[in-house]
Structures are given as C-alpha cells and as structure tokens.
Design a protein around this nucleic acid. Structure first.
Lengths: 189, 189
DNA sequence: ACCATATGAGACACCAACGTCTCATCAGGA
DNA sequence: TCCTGATGAGACGTTGGTGTCTCATATGGT
C-alpha cells in the first residue's frame, strides 16, 4: 500500500467521481456514490467513515483546487482585470464542485465552517481591494460583495452549463465580461 | 370559514413563516416549521399534505411574488437600466425566498419543474433582449446568461445580507450596479 | 349554555438511508 | 502453493423524519 502524495490513488479517484455525481445530484445516496465510483458501499465506508467525512473530504478538495487556481492565476501580477480572467479560467474545471460546496455550506447554518474558506475569501477579497487601490476597480462596491458576486456567478455559470443553458466554452468569457464590464453597453464601444 | 383571496389568512401566515425559516435553514424539519409558525405539527399537516406540498406551495408563492415584482417594475417602460433597477428593488423582499427556491430546484434534478419558472424566465429574458435591441445592453452576453446571472446575484445578495456580509440597505444598489456596470472602473467616471 | 369545528399534544407505524458486520472471493507476494 | 490483505455483496440493527391517528381541549357562533 503506497501513498502517492497525500492520499491513495484509489481514494483520489473515488473522491473525483463522488464530486462529479454530487455536483449533479447533491442528495445522492452513499450507495449511489459507491456505484458511481464502481466500488462497493463497504469499500466506500472504508475510505470515508461516513457521509460527513465524505463531504468534508470534498470540501478539502474544493478548497485545495480553488487555492491552486489562485496560485496559478498569480493575482498579484499585472493588471487586475487580466488577473481576474486568469483566475476564472483556472477555476473553471472546479466550478461544478465549488457550486456544490457553496450550496452545501449554506445548510451548515450555525456550525463552524472550514477555516479554509476564510483563507480563500481573504485572498480574493484582498485581490479586489488591490484592484480598487490601483484605480482599476470601482470603489463603491465593497471587496466583500465583489467576492460574493464572483462566487455567485461561478455557481450560476456552472449550473447553467450543466443544464445546457449556456455553452461550456463560453463559461469564462461570460463570467469575466459580466463581472468586469456589466451588462450595460458602454458608450465608447 | 372565510377565504380572503385565494387562501385562508392562516395558511398565508404559515407559509410566510415557513418561507422565513426555510430560507435560513433549508433542511428544517416539519416539526421545526410548525413550531416556527406557532402551530402544532398536526395542524401544519392539515394545511399542507406533506413536505412536498409545502415546498410546492412555497414555490407558487415565490413565483407569484416574482411575477408581481415584474409587473410592478413595468419592464416595458422607459430605459432598460432604470427598469432593471425597479425590478431589483421590487424583488428585494422576496430575495430570500427566491434564493431558497433556486437551490431547492437544483436538487430536483430530472423531475419536471413548475412551468411558472419558464414563464418568468421568458419575461426576464425578453427584457434583456429588448435592452439589447435598444442598444442599451451589450449583445455579446446572451439574454439567457444575463437572466441566470441576475438570479445568481439576487441569491448571492440574499445570502450575503443574511450572513451580515453586506448591509441590507445596499442590496439593490450592489446588485444593480454590478449587473449593469461591472466591477471595472470606467474611464469617463 | 350548547354545539360544531379547529387545534395541540402525543402515540404509532413506516420508511429510507445510514453505519456495522460477516463471509465468500479474488489478487498478489513470499 | 500458501498466505495475507483488500474487495463486493448482502444481512442486520439503528435512527431521524414522516404521515396518520386519537383524544382532550379550546374557540367561536347561535
């Protein structure tokens, strides 16, 4: 039994298919998750103590992927609008998982949330603040709201692509263009 | 036993408190819903055959309120950006309920959705198309995506207000400004 | 005061999903 | 070949929520 990086290859793949399934059907049964992964329910329980543990693992995976996207995007470099575009492109493969986790987190209600989210919020929020200080982003919209809006648009985009209401290839363009320029047709265009 | 308009006053109030509770905790028990409404679980079941029926009723309420907001906003009149502002202002009181229904609909997965949503989608989508034809909205973002984005931002706004991340009074401003103008600071401003 | 109706509290069975367990099977290494 | 460990299938008990029922009480109209 060899561990590659931080988790076994099996576990990683199970997690992937669970993410794919739960993104589509967030109420999927442990049995369905197991079937989707091509393993038995008992084996699934050997990997993850229970449904909670599975969701926690997915949460960590999502946080990890989003953090990697933040690193890839190099938000500190260059013009803020360009950096935002890089971020959305980098985060696209994880959009479905993140959309699932966002709705999942909403029903956590009072319980303590994974501090990873705070870290991510802080980074994104700081990015928007930097853009404001550089005069590239407007200052009448708070960084907190811009962060929320980014999450919301990523989720909306993921659902819309899932349901075939927008083309998958347009995903980054739609989000970035709306978030940056809005719907109003600018006069100089 | 007197019926006011379409439903008894009792039923209406029960529905209101259920909406308020489920907006905060979407997994609330029938028992919790009943307690929140100040009635017994048996009485709740007398009003709504079951949980499904309750959610359906909430769905109809949300559709009805959103439709009313569309009427109030008079989307056909005047400049499209102004009409959008009127819509968001009118829809604000229902934002929490709509956010709940949006996430609830996502886990309906394959089942047939209430045709009311299609009607609403059509109206909103037609509004954005009209704005494009008038040259007020950009045409590289499809009406379908703008509609999705509007829903997403309304939901994000509702959650953000709920969790105290943005001030309730800023709700319409934040949404409309972002949706219309985007985050980028325009040169002429 | 009387009666009809609505209500709250609680008891009850039911069900789906969960978590645990056993056991037969299979694959790989010694 | 034998042995070890992982796996899938399935049985089993448990649990939380649901839906139904009963009954005592309260409310409101006549």
């Amino acid at each position: 039994m060899v561990y590659g990086c931080l988790m076994s290859l099996d576990r990683e793949q199970v997690l992937r298919s669970a993410a794919a399934l739960l993104t589509r059907k967030s109420t999927a049964t442990m049995d369905e998750v197991a079937k989707a992964a091509g393993i038995g329910r008992a084996t699934l329980h050997r990997h993850f103590a229970g449904r909670d543990a599975l969701v926690r693992a997915l949460e960590n995976l999502g946080i990890q992927e989003f953090e990697a996207a933040l690193d890839t995007a190099a938000l500190d470099e260059g013009a803020a609008p360009d950096a935002l575009r890089r971020l959305v492109v980098a985060v696209e493969p994880s959009a479905g998982l993140l959309a699932f986790l966002v709705t999942e987190n909403q029903l956590f209600e009072g319980e303590e949330v994974n501090e990873g989210w705070n870290r991510l919020d802080a980074r994104v929020s700081a990015f928007f603040r930097r853009g404001q200080e550089r005069g590239e982003f407007r200052i009448d919209l708070t960084p907190a709201w811009l962060t929320e809006a980014l999450y919301g648009l990523i989720s909306s985009g993921a659902w819309a692509v899932q349901d075939g209401r927008v083309a998958s290839q347009d995903f980054p363009y739609m989000i970035v263009e709306l978030l940056l320029g809005g719907a109003r047709r600018s006069v100089e265009q």
